[in-house]
């Protein structure tokens, strides 16, 4: 399973300190999420697009990702324009599409994409494990970080187990249909997956004990803040405050 699509590269964003990334992106995306109107969302989408341009991520990959994200937004485009009262734009039967409705859904679309693009540009450009490492420094409860670490580590292993089980089903000429037999087969497949994951977790814990696990992971490599990190942090904070003020006044 190839999961970290955007983490490969050597742009400015790929080299940023993950700690700085978290500290700057959290306020930025929340300011966007809390915005109303159009000025703020348009501005933040432009800023996010500028950031993604710096990462050198291929537009094709980015678009394919955005299509998936916008599936939910599409649902909103079908319903929301008809759900607000105000100036009528057009009418289908009893349903009135209003200007207010369109503005609302447009605002949501801009916000969604601004947040998603910023997330890809800033967090997507780091490896998952280095992000987890950064979370330890940012005082996230260590149990949660360890949980995340093991969870991510064993996805690919369990996915292989899944592929293997699925192959045995194919060999036995299994065809998925809308039938109790299909559901039962899938249920047993999942049951087997759970049993294997349970057994494996027991072995992992024993292996950890063998290596002297006492509730703490020693960290060998450490992050070093560079001037670039500090500049980026300062710039992002400035931008976040600015878009917050603009969306409030606009």
């Amino acid at each position: 399973m190839h999961l970290e699509e955007f983490a490969e590269g050597n742009s400015f964003f790929h080299r940023l300190d993950p700690r700085v990334k978290f500290i700057t992106i959290i306020p930025y995306i929340f300011v966007i999420a809390f915005m109303k109107g159009l000025n703020g969302p348009v501005l933040s989408l432009i800023i996010s697009l500028v950031m993604i341009a710096f990462t050198g991520i291929s537009i094709k990959k980015l678009l394919s990702r955005l299509v998936v994200v916008n599936a939910f937004v599409l649902l909103l485009w079908i319903f929301l324009p008809f759900s607000y009262s105000g100036t009528e734009v057009f009418q289908i039967g009893h349903l009135k599409a209003t200007r207010e409705g369109f503005l609302q859904v447009l605002s949501i679309t801009l916000k969604t994409n601004a947040i998603v693009i910023a997330t890809i540009a800033i967090l997507g450009t780091s490896e998952v494990f280095s992000l987890a490492h950064a979370l330890v420094h940012l005082k996230v409860p260590d149990k949660l970080v360890y949980l995340f670490f093991f969870f991510y580590r064993y996805i690919s292993v369990l996915h292989e187990e899944y592929i293997r089980l699925k192959r045995t089903m194919t060999i036995r000429a299994f065809k998925a249909r809308t039938s109790i037999h299909t559901y039962k087969t899938y249920a047993y497949l999942i049951g087997m997956l759970i049993v294997r994951s349970y057994d494996r977790s027991q072995r992992i814990y024993k292996a950890m004990l063998c290596r002297g696990f006492k509730g703490k992971f020693p960290i060998i490599s450490h992050f070093h803040l560079t001037i670039a990190d500090l500049c980026f942090g300062f710039l992002m904070t400035l931008i976040t405050v600015l878009i917050a003020i603009i969306s409030k006044n606009g």
Binding site: K143, Y146, L147, F148, F149, F150, F151, Y152, R153, Y154, I155, V157, L158, H159, E161, Y162, I190, L193, I194, R196, S197, Y198, R200, S201, Q202, I204, Y205, M208
Partner: peptide
């Protein structure tokens, strides 16, 4: 932790 984590991986898959 390992048990919960690997079970979570299984459900993710």
């Amino acid at each position: 932790i390992p048990e919960v984590a690997v079970l979570t991986s299984a459900f993710f898959v």
